[in-house]
């Protein structure tokens, strides 16, 4: 794991050559031994952060499991009644494509393909925005108008059991937490695009791009589970 061989502790690049492209000028912070340790450390930190994110969502999955155990028929019916699987499926495809493009963007950075890097990041951001657009304008707003909102404020007249509001609570809270992650992810990707436009990502330095990519994949991962559980099998 960590390199324990004695090293100078002064980093590998004694002076930064201004003629180098920006991505080669990156120098690790002084407490790291070299750029690679810094990169590996940052990535380990990101993975640990991702575990916390997964466990944050595990609470929603736990609530879902319990109430589906208790009211399986109600939930299955409510799932088909209140949610439109087509929008969910389209959003799934969009997120999968965005995951692919962000993986490509990291590959572009590794290969020093600056133009393709920016294009792929841009496509990823567009996918994220499309997801939010579909979510808000084809799901959230119509549902609010029809009163299909969580808990006590539920006022949709066609409810068939006392647990319909509960299903909607799980749906709203899970997708809202997920949606807030999409918003954060889009913001981070936009920041990465800005950094990329300064040519600061390249074969030897793309730490933040890789970590934002990992975060974006997490957003995709959560949706991979939320989609079938909420929209298909209730």
């Amino acid at each position: 794991m960590s390199s324990n061989t004695p090293q100078s502790g002064e980093g590998f690049a004694p002076a930064v050559d201004p003629s180098l492209p920006p991505w080669q000028r990156h120098k690790h912070q002084p407490h790291w031994r070299n750029n690679d340790d810094e990169y590996q450390g940052a990535k380990l930190g990101m993975w640990l952060f991702l575990t916390t994110e997964l466990l944050l969502f595990s609470g929603m999955f736990c609530a879902y499991t319990i109430f589906r155990m208790l009211h399986s028929e109600d939930f299955e019916r409510a799932s088909h009644k209140y949610l439109d699987w087509e929008i969910g499926a389209i959003n799934t495809v969009v997120l999968l494509i965005s995951s692919f493009t962000v993986a490509l963007a990291i590959r572009n950075a590794q290969m020093n393909q600056q133009r393709a890097l920016k294009i792929n990041l841009f496509i990823t951001i567009l996918c994220g925005l499309f997801f939010l657009f579909a979510k808000i304008f084809y799901e959230y707003i119509p549902k609010i108008q029809e009163g299909k909102v969580p808990g006590a404020n539920f006022s949709y007249a066609g409810a068939e059991s006392a647990y319909d509001p509960l299903f909607m609570s799980i749906y709203w809270v899970s997708t809202a937490i997920h949606g807030s992650h999409v918003v954060i992810g889009v913001g981070l990707l936009a920041w990465c695009l800005w950094v990329a436009s300064k040519r600061r990502y390249g074969p030897t330095h793309y730490t933040s791009l890789e970590n934002v990519g990992l975060f974006w994949h997490l957003v995709d991962l959560i949706w991979i589970f939320l989609f079938p559980l909420l929209y298909l099998v209730g």
Binding site: T51, F57, G59, F67, P150, G151, N153, L166, S169, I170
Partner: peptide, 30 residues
């Protein structure tokens, strides 16, 4: 790292419970 996020989602649910009455922990709402 492994336990605190669950506290996060717990108090988050409690907060939305108070703000929007989502009912996940409220017997009156199922």
């Amino acid at each position: 790292v492994l336990a605190t996020p669950v506290l996060g989602v717990t108090v988050l649910l409690l907060t939305v419970e108070r703000l929007f009455k989502v009912g996940i922990f409220d017997p009156a709402l199922g």
